[in-house]
């Protein structure tokens, strides 16, 4: 046997042994911290309550609301169509198919936006896509949409459009006519302003 073959054989074993010595790199599907920082700087993860209301009214199938509050709070009241993934259970195996998916925009919400944002950061670190946070959470939902305030007379038309949208939405979501209502908007004639729909991002692979 020629010497060359012995050299080749020992080289092969040496290289393979080097592989064993390599430190274990855990290649979890995680985005690096630098990328996570960029993601949290990007405010586009926040969807306004108005936008979400419009999408629910449109029966947009590409939106999935995730209530991160406790099961107790969820059972007492939650947004229509929302599923309950308490913040503590965010990483549980059974919820991963809901959170880690393509084609549906997952919108986290809580009473404020802190807990929802925490769930968002955890899932974003895992590299999940199409995640959003409802800006201001249920508190803003109830103060803005369920009890819209009449804009002052001097406001631009857009504000009045927004107001009538919110008013209509509040009726849609079972809030009835808000107490502060002074405008005579007849229930039948309410035109729900359809917001421009955000196209669902089709996940490419």
């Amino acid at each position: 046997m020629s010497k060359v073959y012995i050299i080749f054989a020992s080289l092969l074993i040496l290289v393979a042994f080097g592989l064993v010595l390599l430190p274990d790199t855990e290649h979890e599907d995680q985005i690096p911290p630098e990328a996570l920082l960029k993601e949290i700087m990007n405010q586009s993860r926040f969807l306004s309550a108005d936008l979400i209301a419009a999408r629910i009214i449109d029966e947009d199938p590409s939106i999935m609301l995730v209530d991160v509050r406790t099961a107790e709070a969820y059972n007492s009241y939650s947004l229509p169509g929302a599923i309950n993934i308490p913040l503590k259970e965010t990483l549980d195996e059974e919820w991963q198919p809901y959170l880690n998916q393509r084609g549906v925009d997952v919108v986290f919400f809580s009473n404020g936006d802190l807990f929802a944002d925490q769930a968002w950061i955890l899932c974003s670190r895992l590299g999940y896509k199409n995640l959003y946070v409802m800006e201001g959470g249920l508190n803003q939902w109830f103060t803005q949409i369920m009890q819209p305030t009449v804009p002052p007379d001097t406001s631009p038309n857009e504000d009045f459009d927004l107001y009538s949208f919110r008013k209509a939405a509040s009726i849609y979501f079972g809030g009835g006519a808000p107490a502060q209502s002074t405008q005579d908007i007849k229930g039948e004639n309410i035109q729900i302003i359809r917001r421009e729909k955000k196209t669902a991002t089709a996940g490419g692979c």
């Binding site: 199938p61 999935m64 229509p80 599923i83 198919p97 549906v104 369920m146 079972g174």
Partner: peptide, 18 residues
């Protein structure tokens, strides 16, 4: 507001694509 009717959250959409 809705006159005694309790709105229960209905379970979410099942159209997930893992």
């Amino acid at each position: 507001m809705s006159g005694g009717e309790v709105v229960k959250p209905n379970p979410g959409p099942a159209q997930i694509e893992p």
